[in-house]
Each structure stands twice: as structure tokens, then as C-alpha cells.
Amino acid sequence: MLEVRTLSKRFGGLRAVKDVSLDVPAGSITALIGPNGAGKTTTFAMIAGFIMPDSGSVRFAGTDVTRWRPDRIAALGMVRTFQITQPFAGLSVAENIRVGAFLRHHDVAEAEARARDVGTRLGLGPMLDRPAAALTVAGRKRLEVARALATEPRLLLLDEVMAGLNPSEVNEIVALIRQVRDGGVTILLIEHIMQAVAALAETAHVLAEGALIASGTPRQIAADPAVVEAYLGHGAAERMARHG
């Protein structure tokens, strides 16, 4: 479904992303994890067309979409959410979701019905006619997902939709993401919360200092010394082995 090859991006002297390659098979839930500042969001932004890569390529559903504009990528069926939620603050929750629904539905009544349906499925039912600005953090994260889903994507890029949520909210959204995937949408997600990644993803890729350092099942990754070092510091794996 998604093939990323040797994607690189440099900001001045900083090589934010170095030769990142990864595949997202159709129907899977794939995770991209890594410590703060590893380049996850930059990678996402390049895949979705928000940042132009310096080199490398992105193929989506058999089409080379490298350097495409975000709206064309979205129209093709790959839609991202934002880590820092970006609601249309002046609009109601339903109107927010409707903007997404308008991508595939030109009829206003149809888009409206579609938006209310998606919103209700994502647990935003009671909030649909309230202003988006009135949502809690968890509500805003749901709105991000709802709006993206309303575009009827084939591949959904979720950027830390669980950050800032409490454990019970995390459990709810984990169930929700699984439900979305079972509905036929492939998912690539960036996540910090290891518990969520382990519960959701079949495959995880670990990014550290802009480069991929490991790929595998969440279990394999958690046991990988290079990953432990990236998260906990140089020599941590060795120290843990000695003490553990």
C-alpha cells in the first residue's frame, strides 16, 4: 500500500531524516516509534506532502506521489492527522467533519449525513452541534480521526493520537483504531505510548536521530538493544543486562 524509499530531509545543518525506507502492507496497522526529535513527524509530513523531501521517494497504491501536494495525496486516499490538533475552531464539530466528507461527496445533504454518521461512530455524537473549540483534548483527537475518516481514506496516517490522553481514553482509542482497520482502512501510526503500540501494531519501525534503527514486531523491538539504547541512553542495554 505504501512504499517509502531512502527518504531524507535536511534543515540547515541538521539531517532530520536520513534514508528512511519502510513498507506498509495493505490492511495492516504499522507503527513508527522513536524518542522525541527522532524525525517521526517530519517523515510523516514528507509522506503526506506537507514537507518536500531532499531525496527519496514515496509510492502510494502503486503511484509515485513524491512531491505531490497534500490535497492531491488526500484525494488519492492517503490522509494524515496532526499531532497538535488543528480543528476549524470557528465551526461546529459536525461542520468540521463535513469538510472531510466533502472530499468524496459533492451533495451537501449527503456530506452532512456522512459526517454525522462518522462522528457518532467515533463517540462524538453528543458534541456534534457544539463548537469544535469546546472539545476536550481527547475530543479533539477524536475529531482529528473523524475528519480524516470522513474523507474515506485507504491509508490513514495517525500522528500521536494518544498523546495527552489518560489510560482509559487510550484504551478507547485503541479499540477505535482497530475498528477502523477492520473496516478496511490501512493504518500507519506514530506513537510514544509503547503499551498502545504493542496492543495495536503488527509491525513497528524505530526511528532515532533521523535514521531507522530497527524494524519488527513490537515484541522483537522491545528486546532490541539498539532500541533500548536509543530510548534510555548510551550503554543502557548493557547496564540493564548486567543488573537484570
Binding site: F50, D71, V99, T151
Partner: peptide, 17 residues
């Protein structure tokens, strides 16, 4: 509706196609 979305938030609007 799409024009208002652009006014409210360009990045989000672009992400939604």
C-alpha cells in the same frame, strides 16, 4: 464550506484534500 475551512486552518484543509 471548503473556503471557510481554508480560512480557519490551511494545513488541516489541505490534509482533507
Amino acid at each position: 464550506a471548503r473556503l471557510v475551512a481554508v480560512r480557519e486552518n490551511e494545513d488541516a484543509a489541505a490534509a482533507l484534500g
